[in-house]
């Protein structure tokens, strides 16, 4: 039996999709497969018309950091300044060192984290890491941003501010990109357009939104009938 079974979902441009699951339920594995960082045993992952599971590693590496951006809480493996970390994917994809530096500075400015440019990841607060992560994700023109657990445990206010910022960045992206994020708490998923719950059995259950971009909105029973009881 695999960790994940019969998992199928999509992220459309301009949309934030959240996967909610407890630790060790396979959220990161699912996101890595969606980002093309890992192969599924069966099935396929497509980005637009391009099948990620079929293309050669060399082509896939070109997509990663350019059209597909992965961010998590870990930060850079090497001890580099934030400005370099943010501009790195652009430098690797033909932007040139100077161009990457400029883009990184703009990206940090856009998220309100200019003061972090000369600092190391390890010296940043949790909130600054969120800002820097989002700056890196949107420094270029990604088609999809995959965020693993970065927005967890920010508290109500932090979640709200991070979600507003994420929404602003998505709306400003050109071409419009989609966001796939994982979280272990429901709170971080409150502002997503679609919320999937990952079950202990490795399946996905829709909690909010449409099944597919063309599909029906999940039916909401009338308020009186739909509400449970909180005693």
């Amino acid at each position: 039996m695999g960790v994940l079974e019969d998992v199928s979902f999509e992220v459309v441009p301009g949309e934030v999709v959240a996967i909610v699951g407890s630790r060790l339920e396979g959220k990161t594995t699912l996101l890595k497969i969606a980002a093309g960082l890992e192969y599924p045993d069966e099935g396929s992952v497509t980005l637009g018309a391009q099948e990620l599971t079929d293309i050669q590693d060399r082509c896939r590496s070109r997509l990663l950091g350019d059209e597909i951006v992965w961010i998590n809480r870990d930060g850079p493996r090497l001890k580099v300044k934030v400005s370099k970390f943010v501009g790195w994917p652009l430098a690797l994809h033909g932007c040139g060192r100077r161009g990457a530096e400029r883009a990184a500075a703009q990206a940090l400015e856009r998220v309100g984290a200019r003061e972090c440019a000369g600092r190391l990841w390890g010296d940043l607060s949790n909130w600054q890491r969120v800002l820097v992560g989002l700056a890196r994700a949107f420094a270029g023109n990604p088609r999809i941003v995959v965020i693993d657990d970065l927005l967890d445990a920010l508290g109500s206010r932090g979640t709200e501010e991070a979600s507003d910022l994420l929404r602003t960045l998505v709306e400003a992206s050109n071409p419009r990109c989609g966001v796939l994020m994982s979280t272990s708490d429901v709170e971080s998923a409150l502002f997503a357009d679609r919320v999937w719950s990952l079950t202990r059995k490795g399946a996905l259950k829709l909690m909010f939104g449409r099944l597919t971009s063309e599909g029906e909105v999940i039916p909401f029973p009338e308020r009186a009938e739909s509400r449970g009881h909180v005693a």
């Binding site: 507003d164 429901v186 409150l190 502002f191 909690m207 909010f208 039916p219 909401f220 739909s226 509400r227």
Partner: peptide
Amino acid sequence: AYTAAFAAAQLEVKAEQRLRR
């Protein structure tokens, strides 16, 4: 039932977010 209630409440949260922004 609770998932449907969550979905209904989330719609309101998102509407409030749109207004706030």
